[in-house]
Simulated scan of single mutants.
Amino acid sequence: MSSNTGVEQTNTVEKETANTIINLLIIEDEVGQIEQIEDAIKDFNRKEGNAKGIKIQQQSVNTSEGAMFALLKDEFDAAIVDLRLNGTNGDEEGVDLIEVIIDRLRLPIFVRSGFPEKVAGISSEHGFVKVFKKTDNIDLIIKEIIKFHNNGITATIGTKGKVEKYLNEIFWGRFSKNVHLWDKELLDNSEYEKSLVRYCLALLQEHLEIEEDVGDFSDYHPFEVFISPPIKSNYFFGDILYDDANYYIILSPACDMAQKKYEKIIIAQIEPLDTITSFIEHQQRYNETQSKNKKDKAKKKVIEFLTNNYNDKYHYLPKYMRFSGGLINFQKIQSKTKEELDGMNRFASISGKFSKDIGARFSNYFARQGQPNLNIDVLLKTILDLNEDE
C-alpha cells in the first residue's frame, strides 16, 4: 500500500478488465478490517463480478481528513464508513463525515460500525444510508452496493451522472457563449439568481425530454408524476391528501392558492381502480379469456382508463409508494376549509407537467355545454351523395 495525505490506496482491479467499474471508497482505520473488506471484494470480482462483467475498484483511507481529500479529488460510486477513526473514543468524526457527504455529494453510504445506533436517525431518513454491524457479513454490503449501482440512480443524478454532464454542457455550451446577455445590473440579486435557475432548468428539461439516439420525445416513468414529500410549505393545487378511508387531490385554482384568496379549498376524491366496476370487468375479461381477439379488446379498454380516454369524469394517477393509484373523479367534489384539511395527511404533490393537464381536464369537464344532435341522415346526403333507397 502507498500512503498520501492520510490516504492508503489499493487498486486491485484494472479498469480494462470489466464492462462496469464501481469505484468504492473505504473509510476505515483498522488494517485488519480493511483487509477483510478487500478480501471480500477480491472474491466478488473473481467470481460473481467476473461472470457479470462488474468489478469493484476500491480506495482506502484511514482518517476523516484523508476521506475528504479523496472525495474532493476522485469520483466514487459508494463509500463504506467506520464511525470511529484514528482510535478515537468518540464517533463524532464519522457522523460528521456522513453529514458532509449528504450535504455536498451524491453517493450511497454504507456505515459499518460497532455502534450502528449512532446513525439510526440518519439511516431512517435517507434510503441511501445503510447501516451494518462490524459482525455482519461483508458480502451483504457488497450485494447492497451492486443493487444501488444497478438501479441507475447514481449513474443519472450522481456527481458523475448524466445530469452532471448536461449541466456541464449548459454551462459551456450555452451560458459561456451568451454570458453578455445576463446583465446583473438589470435585476436585484435574488431575482437574478431565480432567473438563472429557471433558465438552467428549462435547458436541462430540453435535454432530458429528448432521446439522444432517436431525437424524439421520451415517455415518462409513472413515478415522475409525483413529488414526495411536497416542496411547497402550504397547500397547493395538485396536492394529494388522505384520511383514514380515502385519497383526495386539491383542485382549487393555482393562482388562488398562491395568493391565499380562498375561503374553502376544492378537493376531489381519488377512487381506487379495484372499486371501479367497469375497469374490473375489462381486467377480468383480459385475465380469464383464452381468445386473443377478446384479450385485445379488453386490453384496449384497460388502456383507455390509463390514458384518460374512457370517461371525461375520470383522470388516472399511477401507483406510487403507499398510494395504490386510481381515478380522480371530477363528480365527487367537496369544499373544505384549511382547518378541515389540517385533519388530513399531505402525502405528495403532482408535478407541474401532469398537474396542468389535470387542471385543464377539470375545467373542461365542468365548462362543457354540449349541443343538440344534428340530423345525421341530412349530413350524409350532402357529404356522401346517398341515394334515397340507401
Rank of each mutant, 00 (worst) to 15 (best):
Y314R: 05
T289Q: 08
K301S: 14
D296A: 11
N293T: 13
K299S: 07
M321H: 08
F305Y: 14
Y310W: 10
P318I: 08
R322M: 11
D312E: 14
M321Q: 14
K295I: 06
Y286Q: 10
R322I: 10
K295V: 04
K292C: 01
E304D: 14
K297H: 12
K301E: 15
T289F: 07
K294V: 07
N293G: 02
D312L: 07
L317S: 01
N309T: 11
P318S: 05
E304T: 10
E288W: 00
L306W: 08
A298I: 05
F305C: 03
K319T: 09
A298P: 01
D296C: 06
Y286A: 09
A298H: 05
Q290H: 13
V302K: 02
K299M: 13
Y286N: 04
V302F: 00
N311T: 04
T289C: 06
D296I: 12
N309E: 14
N293L: 11
P318N: 00
K313P: 03
Y314C: 06
A298M: 04
D312A: 15
L317Q: 00
R322W: 00
F305R: 07
K295T: 01
V302A: 00
V302Q: 13
K319P: 03
Y314K: 05
K292W: 07
H315R: 09
T307Q: 10
M321L: 15
N293M: 08
Y316A: 03
Y320Q: 02
R322C: 07
N309A: 06
N311Q: 10
R322N: 14
K299E: 11
N309W: 02
N293S: 14
